[in-house]
């Protein structure tokens, strides 16, 4: 008669996990048999493989609670935050296929290079330009005020890159700034304390700017925080269209 550990092991069921292995453009899927648990996230599965099957597997995570935005990967074809994605919800015929995020170069295995993604935040003027010093009084902004409400709707971005990976315009046009950077720009366009509104509207009006968005809403579909970058981009289109006539006066 086996001990308790053996009995658990006998009852244990496994799932097939196909994991992308490789560097740059070169790579292939490698299969692992991973024990199924009743309550298990995709990140748990990747960590199990790294700790029990192949310590050379590279991937990225930090907080494990959906705050830091570093663990996003392509899971069964869709971009997802792996730390908050339960395996049972995405398992397809007992198979889990995990790959790095789309639209970004691969560093190694599941770790995508996000530097281009963040460079575009800077290119979209996603940086706050203060208009006051620390000695000035803090302006009072009514939380119900229209522009403040626009900011509230867009502010909870965790920079995970899921919208960027989901966006077909990014895939087709590598210069496109992408949903996250433009969503960030929209929050700052509405910020009454910011002093670079015109520069920001100009920054999102270039060849890779907001006007390239086709409103397909892949970003809205996949955003783990239920944000609506398409609406933010539509806001930028409206404001830049108004500025088009102002700039020519």
């Amino acid at each position: 008669m086996g001990n308790a550990v053996d009995i658990v092991a006998e009852r244990e069921t496994h799932m097939t996990v196909r994991v992308w292995r490789g560097q740059g453009d070169q790579g292939r899927y490698e299969s692992f048999e991973v024990p199924e648990r009743e309550n298990q996230t995709v990140l748990d599965v990747v960590t199990w493989i790294q700790q029990n099957a192949d310590p050379s597997l590279s991937y990225r995570y930090a907080c494990r609670v959906g705050m830091c935005g570093s663990c996003a990967m392509t899971v069964n074809g869709k971009p997802r935050w792996t730390c908050r994605t339960h395996v049972q919800k995405v398992l397809d015929g007992g198979i889990l296929e995990i790959a790095p995020l789309r639209n970004m170069p691969v560093i190694k295995d599941l770790a995508a290079d996000m530097s281009g993604f963040f460079d575009k935040w800077v290119a979209a003027e996603g940086v706050f330009h203060p208009t006051a010093t620390r000695t000035d009084e803090i302006p009072k902004i009514d939380p119900r005020e229209e522009r403040r409400v626009e900011i509230d709707n867009a502010i909870e971005c965790i920079n995970c890159g899921i919208c960027y990976a989901a966006c077909d315009v990014v895939a087709a046009n590598p210069d496109y700034l992408g949903p996250a950077a433009l969503n960030r720009a929209w929050t700052l366009v509405n910020d009454q304390k910011d002093g670079a509104r015109d520069a920001r509207l100009a920054a999102v009006s270039g060849g890779g700017g907001c006007h390239n968005c086709h409103s397909q809403q892949g970003c809205v579909q996949h955003c783990p925080n239920d944000l609506n970058p398409t609406a933010s981009i539509a806001g930028l289109k409206r404001e830049t269209a108004k500025s088009f006539f102002k700039w020519r006066r």
């Binding site: 060849g207 006007h211 269209a241 088009f244």
Partner: peptide
């Protein structure tokens, strides 16, 4: 690729 000028020309 599609900047503000081209976008506005297409809308107008």
């Amino acid at each position: 690729m599609l900047d503000l000028r081209l976008y506005m020309l297409q809308r107008i």
